[in-house]
Design a binder for these strands. Structure first.
Lengths: 160, 160
DNA sequence: ACTTTGCTTGTATAATTATTCAAGAAAAAG
DNA sequence: CTTTTTCTTGAATAATTATACAAGCAAAGT
């Protein structure tokens, strides 16, 4: 019976590509792909896959694959944009701290400055840290969206 | 109320050092440390801390801290810590400013970075000033406590 | 003083997730 | 082929976790 294998495969894809926040949500997504099952089975599948449920930065929850728990070095892309230099993005109040690889902070900060996204008032860069002052009226998801316009993949760097 | 800050600190320690598998379990551990609270509060604390619940190898579940930790060179001994370079530590909102003697800022900031205390999101250093961005959920005394773990005497530098 | 505002918390409950139980299906053994 | 064992699953339920609500409290303003 390879139904299970296919379903498990689909679950992995769905969790990696969408922001799945509950098992019922996952259940619906699977139905749209033609898998019909129950929440009980999903609970078992998720346990077998070691998928963790983590609080999201926007106030909800997300299921995350175990290897996504640790920022993956393998996906460093030094192509268009030196996103590989970015290790994490974390918020505190109306500030955001971007951790970079040593020496990257100034370069990345100047890229942000040159694009001047509305949500960002300004940046200050050290050697491996960028401090980002956000506009008072914008949300955190708004800031991330603004950055992602020219920093594709930045969402994956958001911590917590 | 610094009860919350202390409790949150304790939660972090407990989760990092023990194999906590449920909120009730955590509740018991906290009671043994003298904290009396309820499951509801723990749920909120864990959400704020972005602690994830992950299936464990042994068939159970564990709570895990978000993995934004720096590799552990934290065992380095800074026995002769250049505390003399520090002139003052002062808070403003969720920021702290450390004034140092000229030229000391970068060195001291990198020491803080290498220890990566939980309470501190990141630092940016100039020549004689370090800006320290603190985590939203921690108190000022919590920050000072976190720093004093490897910067004995820092308390004496706190202004106000 | 008195409000007001915002934060923290507990109770009770809702929502979600895990597991028990039984049953059906496939593989393995006889 | 028949029996036995192992897997997988759904339904029901247990267990766990999240949240609505209200109360308590402190800081800040009037």
């Amino acid at each position: 019976m390879k139904v299970k294998a296919q379903r498990v495969n689909a679950i992995v894809q769905l969790i990696e590509n969408n922001r799945v926040g509950s098992q019922d949500e996952l259940l619906t997504l699977l139905e749209q792909l033609g898998f019909k099952t129950t929440q009980a089975t999903l609970s078992r599948d998720l346990k077998a896959l070691k998928v963790a449920k983590q609080p999201d930065y926007d106030g909800g929850y997300v299921y995350v694959m175990p290897e996504n728990q640790v920022p993956e070095e393998s996906e460093l892309s030094y192509g268009d944009f030196p996103l590989g230099g970015i290790l994490s993005l974390e918020f505190s109040g109306n500030l955001a701290v971007i951790k970079t690889r040593p020496g990257f902070a100034n370069g990345i900060a100047s890229v942000i400055d040159s694009h001047g996204p509305y949500e960002v008032l300004g940046t200050i860069a050290g050697d491996d840290t960028i401090l980002l002052i956000t506009r008072e009226t914008v949300s955190r998801t708004g800031v991330v969206s603004g950055l992602s316009l020219f920093m594709p993949g930045i969402r994956d760097k958001v911590v917590g």
